[in-house]
Design a protein around this nucleic acid. Structure first.
Lengths: 344, 344
DNA sequence: CTCGCTTGTGGAATCGATACCATCAAGGGA
DNA sequence: TCCCTTGATGGTATCGATTCCACAAGCGAG
């Protein structure tokens, strides 16, 4: 019961209990084939010394580390923190822990993170790569001797399975919805366009616009509140301003909403707004914001489940696994596109 | 360059390079006292085999694990995810990784989490306990042979240092602000009251109200959107309804805001609103919401820094460490209390 | 009464990296 | 020329838990 300065070891427990190390080991691992009396005695000693098996020693004997790596751009991003929460639940259910590493989409940080996880002998790896094209990361991930699952963004040209929402279909759905409303000058505000997800959404937007024979209006300049204000100002001082805006990510949606509000451009009367990705207060803002909702927890959950499946197979075998799991998104109708809100 | 099925070991590298294990070990650890030629050769072999030192074996030799545990109620909560992000940055700067465990404030899950981290031989531990009074957790944390820092919520009756925002002063400041505006019937909407932070905030509210000789109006019933609507309805159908509301946590603020909006109670004309804890869209809502802002990243950062300081001391020594680091909060004036917004 | 079998137990090799100690060659000063 | 230092290198015990193997005791069946 007293505070110890050092972790006691299994042999110390064995000595204190007057038994061999084998017996203590058996007690720890379920106590099969141990005399009930001995069992009780050893358990008391374990309790008294505050003994905890040293995971490192177990690992060294070839066991799994029961540790999986989770490499994402940021923990503070609600999308990834929700994924992490879901993945963590699956990990715990599989008696494992998550090591979360953040990269800010920096390729260098990604390689570092993977190296750290390799040293820790993680059993598996879930990663959301900043750049789907990166050869460096791809060859690295293909070489390493543990299962990898990509999250939200695939690793192009590799067999690494990826779990993600269907960005193309989501953006097409969003655009089609605006078209059905009768909007004709639909601008797409992308934010940065380096990310795979954004590029897919742009493709979806383009596909829908082309099909409706409408002119694509792309703007990639919104990075923060100030640039949103500039962009809106510029767009609405042209002869033929847009009558609807499709924003391709959360922060862009919010910056744009604020800018429209500040510049007194009423939504949806003057211009409709549809945002990609739901956010907590989308229904509370006035007007409430119509969005494409992604199955966030599901992405994290399924990625983790897929990883654990792959971990259970023999390392050499490569059974028929889905190369890619695309989850469908849905439209949540609110007021910013002049809809009757969906019930939910 | 080829894909291996197993992690190669140091001795395999040694054999492949035709040198001893000691030399390879030296190469890995900086390459001092190694012939440049040998160094280059060994490095080539390491590169070719994709060798990564086995952290478990290192740990076993008595090294630090360079792993710290981070035990919080939820990763999806923006407060804790921001803390985690900040703590992670400090951990990385100290060449360590974070193992994040979530507990949903469940004491059982907390004990589990700590046990897992002990097995993994984390070098240190940051924990936000759901219940500050829990004897079980307290005795457990006092027994274990590694430094612990509490986050956001202290562990009462123990010497475990805690980093948190000054909840008492924050709530008092908020209440005083409303009093200065001339509001007299200021109701405090608490949400659940089991958490230490909420109780401190209630104390702060009470202190300010007492000083101004105003009557305390406490309501603990808001748990979700529906209960917020009920509460608002009830409050405003009394003879003497409140003229201001102080909500003690984020979700309560948002539920209340939505309820007031739905029930057409204009803010701040009919009733003022001041929320504890800032949130992303507080400035975007109409009216924008005046809040008490906590130094979120700082809490995470300082907790991690304090932990690393304590880890560098000899395990036995107990130098003069702050028992508690209280960070001050600040008021962000927006429209919901009829203020001129603060510039920021 | 002894053979096989189960149960309870301990000894010791093992995992991979580290670091103490030993070895050997080369070079510099006396 | 010899001793001593310095640099480069290798052998091997060590960390803590697991596990194969060995062994002893008890017991029912033949």
């Amino acid at each position: 019961m007293k505070k110890t300065d050092k972790h006691p070891t299994l042999s110390e427990v064995a000595r204190a209990a007057g038994v061999g190390t084998t017996t203590v080991s058996r007690v720890i691992n379920g106590g099969h084939r141990v005399d009930p009396q001995t069992l009780a005695r050893v358990q008391r000693v374990i309790e008294r010394l505050g003994y905890m098996p040293n995971q490192a020693a177990r690992i060294l004997k070839g066991d799994r580390t029961r540790t999986i790596g989770f490499v994402i751009p940021s923990i503070a991003d609600p999308f990834f923190s929700s994924c992490a929460e879901a993945a963590q639940a699956i990990a715990r259910a599989n008696d494992s822990v998550l090591i979360v590493m953040t990269t800010q989409n920096d390729p260098h940080a990604e390689v570092d993170a993977v190296n750290v996880l390799l040293r820790h002998r993680a059993d598996g790896l879930i990663i959301a790569p900043g750049n789907s094209q990166s050869r460096l990361l791809r060859t690295m991930l293909e070489r390493i001797p543990l299962p990898v699952v990509a999250l939200d963004r695939p690793i192009t040209g590799s067999a690494i399975p990826c779990v993600l929402a269907d960005n193309f279909a989501g953006a097409r759905l969003a655009t089609e919805h605006l078209i059905e409303h009768g909007y004709e000058r639909i601008a797409c505000l992308t934010g940065e366009i380096t990310l795979y997800t954004i590029r897919e959404r742009i493709r979806g937007y383009r596909a829908a616009m082309k099909r409706a024979r409408l002119e694509c209006i792309l703007d990639t300049s919104i990075q923060d509140y100030r640039s949103a204000e500039d962009t809106v100002q510029r767009m609405f001082s042209t002869a033929n301003p847009p009558d609807a805006l499709l924003t391709l990510k959360n922060s862009t949606t919010i910056f744009t909403f604020e800018a429209l509000q500040k510049l007194n451009q009423p939504i949806p009367e003057r211009v409709a707004l549809l945002g990609y990705d739901d956010f907590e207060l989308a229904a509370t803002l006035r007007p409430s914001v119509t969005v494409i909702q992604q199955p966030v927890e599901e992405v994290g959950r399924i990625a983790a489940e897929l990883l654990f499946e792959r971990m259970q197979e023999a390392p050499a075998s490569h059974p028929s696994h889905p190369r890619q799991v695309q989850l469908s998104t849905r439209l949540i109708r609110r007021r910013s596109c002049a809809c009757q809100p969906s019930l939910n």
